[in-house]
Design a protein around this nucleic acid. Structure first.
Lengths: 257, 257
DNA sequence: CGATATGTTGAGACCCGTCAATTAGGGTGG
DNA sequence: CCACCCTAATTGACGGGTCTCAACATATCG
């Protein structure tokens, strides 16, 4: 499964302070132990956490994709973040009794979970646990920062490119195969994530397909011209992701799902 | 100064778990003690942290405004977040040696700071410190989530409205006056924050001024028709902020700067 | 095998961007 | 106190990327 190689796998995060890898690993080990008793599955479309309702659990996503979705009083909706296998989500539950967004399963999903009080309890016993979760929040925030830049300044093509490279890189870091990968989102969901309309997303995807940069059939994404997609996304990628492209066949050690 | 009233002031954050207020307060007290030795000032336009360069300090903003700004390889730039008095910033320095954004002073600024290793050391001695900083990251992220929704789905008027209400609410929570407040950003900076052009920001501001909803002269912002601005921003505000409007004269206990 | 969700395509409208010119404001030196 | 400068703010004309509305095609599933 993802991150099965121990401390070494943390080195996939090249920006981070290496002296913390051991702490992060210990924190993760403690969480693994504490959470493994509580597993749960969801089907595509299921709501894991409901908007604005009190909720008490922190989750660890083991398989499948999850979206943080916000619905506005009118019909608009925005997918604020997408979680991939290996991510923790709902960590803010430790501080917030309720949140304004719903967490929804984009695919079949397996999670482990832990009550927020136990999380805090664990953290007090073992600061590494806090460090690991705090780190997750920081990592999420880092992506969010890039995404704000993309939404604020990027056009449709740049946003699609950035989205694809982000998913690809993260799946790779989670130890999953990335030559091609399942993208379990409808074009409507992609549009909600990119801040565009389905119609426009469809047009741009067609354009990229015609330019033979990508191929998306039945939810399976193949980036056929990596170089081109990287060039597309470059303007709205952060300085570090810009040079984080993967080479083909780089240590994928598990098939997705 | 901001948050001088002790634990009670945490109740300004109505979503948060009250049982943590004491922990947060203790964490903040420990940080106050540790950081007060290190103060520094910056002038408007100064860069506090440079993009992509190694950096070792976590900051506590005491007075003034700070922007997290990202510049793209072409001319575009985006202000990803704005920090107000009382906020910690650069907390991710604990985990990341470098970051893709610059932190820039929007106004005259005073900060206190602490080396990231000392922060981690403090956290190990006193978990409340970690909780307090972790909390800050979560709070930042919460705002960021709303902002992603605004950038993705909101039009220019909605974004401006949401920005003004956000600043107003946060200044209030920091114990500052909000009937009118100094908005130390040029229209270009506002545009970079809203993901728009200066030209368009100017036009929309004029429209709001002509509708007598706001008045912005020499960097001083007065929301003359609170009701109208709230209605403007409502669609892109989160469920909780939507009902967090302030009444005039509600316990402002300090003049800004 | 029909029902329903999802994907695809076209025509026209609109919000916002681009380019360019002008005005106002805030500081400096004479 | 005025001449000057430079930045910021303002306004107009025009173009383009994205949205809206609408129709149709295709896939998926019980």
């Amino acid at each position: 499964m993802a991150r099965s190689e121990g401390i070494a796998s943390w080195s996939r995060f090249p920006l981070h302070r290496p002296e913390l890898f051991a702490d992060l690993h210990r924190g993760e080990a403690a969480l693994t132990k504490a959470m493994s008793a509580n597993a749960k599955t969801f089907r595509p479309g299921d709501t894991i956490i409901f908007e604005a309702e009190p909720h008490s659990y922190v989750y660890w996503l083991r398989t499948g994709w999850v979206a943080r979705a916000r619905r506005m009083p009118d019909q608009r909706s925005q997918i604020i973040a997408v979680f991939l296998p290996g991510d923790f989500f709902g960590v803010k539950t430790v501080f917030l009794a309720r949140q304004p967004d719903a967490m929804e399963a984009l695919s079949a999903v397996t999670v482990e979970f832990l009550h927020h009080r136990q999380v805090l309890q664990l953290t007090r016993e073992n600061p590494d646990v806090g460090v690991r979760l705090w780190w997750q929040v920081c990592e999420d925030q880092r992506r969010l920062h890039s995404w704000v830049a993309g939404l604020g300044r990027g056009n449709a093509e740049e946003r699609i490119g950035a989205m694809l490279l982000d998913f690809r890189l993260r799946l790779h870091r989670a130890g999953l195969k990335t030559e091609s990968f399942r993208l379990p989102m409808t074009q409507q969901q992609i549009a909600d994530y990119l801040g565009l309309t389905v119609v426009h997303v469809n047009r741009v995807l067609r354009r990229l397909r015609e330019a033979e940069m990508i191929s998306l059939t039945r939810g399976r994404m193949v980036i056929t011209d990596m170089r081109a997609v990287e060039q597309l996304a470059r303007p709205i990628q952060d300085v570090f992701d810009r040079s984080a492209g993967l080479f083909d066949g780089e240590s994928p050690n598990a098939e997705q799902q």
